[in-house]
């Protein structure tokens, strides 16, 4: 059944009804939402959306699976992915040889996911998060080692994960995921400990300087 045309006209109202019904309708809707607000705002650093698997986030390489076919570098529309020649020890041939592996430049990447889709051995995959800040442009060009690590999920350190669920009355409803919080809290503690140890190692020098300043 193809489409068909439906002739319509602007809804008409008599002038008196327009003044009263229109104004009262608008005011009533305004008051309804004033008294019962339907908020969908994400309080971002305090909360973050736990995206589902399949989201096209940052890309990670599994080097063992890579067969150096360079399909990913050829299909990259933004020329973000480049092949890098590295000396590696080939286990099958049992000799050291030069092989090519992909590295990525996040300055250019547009997260289209073609490289992941084209990889014949599934050596690349997406992580389901995308909010990460690099301190300078140089850091965004990843080395082969960095490209194999999953980038740190920074928003998970500060915020609590939420998920948006569709709802008939409210559109999107925010659901806090308390259970998943526990899983994430462990690495957070570890990083905190690391930071505190770093601070302890760093601290003695400025402290002594301060003391000296006070004594003088």
């Amino acid at each position: 059944m193809p489409a068909k045309v439906a002739l319509k006209r602007n809804p008409k109202k008599n002038p008196l009804g327009r003044v009263f019904v229109g104004n009262i309708g608008a005011l009533a809707i305004g008051l309804k939402y004033f008294l019962d607000p339907n908020r969908i705002t994400l309080l971002y650093p305090h909360e973050y959306i736990k995206l589902r698997q399949g989201y096209r986030g940052f890309i990670v390489l599994i080097q063992d699976k890579c067969i150096s076919c360079s399909s990913c570098a050829r299909i990259c529309p933004a020329r973000a992915m480049k092949m890098l020649s590295v000396k590696v020890f080939d286990k099958r041939l049992k000799k050291e040889m030069v092989k090519k592996f992909p590295v990525i430049n996040y300055n250019r990447c547009i997260f289209c996911g073609y490289c992941v889709d084209v990889c014949p051995t599934e050596a690349l995959y997406h992580v389901p998060y995308h909010d990460l800040v690099y301190m300078n442009m140089q850091d965004m060009i990843l080395s082969l080692e960095d490209f194999q690590k999953e980038p740190e999920n920074v928003s998970a350190k500060e915020g609590i994960p939420v998920r948006y669920v569709f709802d008939e009355k409210r559109g999107l409803v925010k659901i806090k995921q308390e259970e998943e919080k526990k899983e994430i809290s462990q690495p957070v503690e570890q990083t905190k400990q690391q930071e505190s140890t770093k601070q302890q190692t760093n601290n003695p020098e400025p402290k002594s300087v301060n003391k000296g300043g006070v004594n003088q």
Binding site: Y33, P37, R39, I40, T41
Partner: peptide
Amino acid sequence: KAAAFVQMRYGPR
């Protein structure tokens, strides 16, 4: 704040 209540957001917070 009132506008934010009507407009699905939080306003200054």
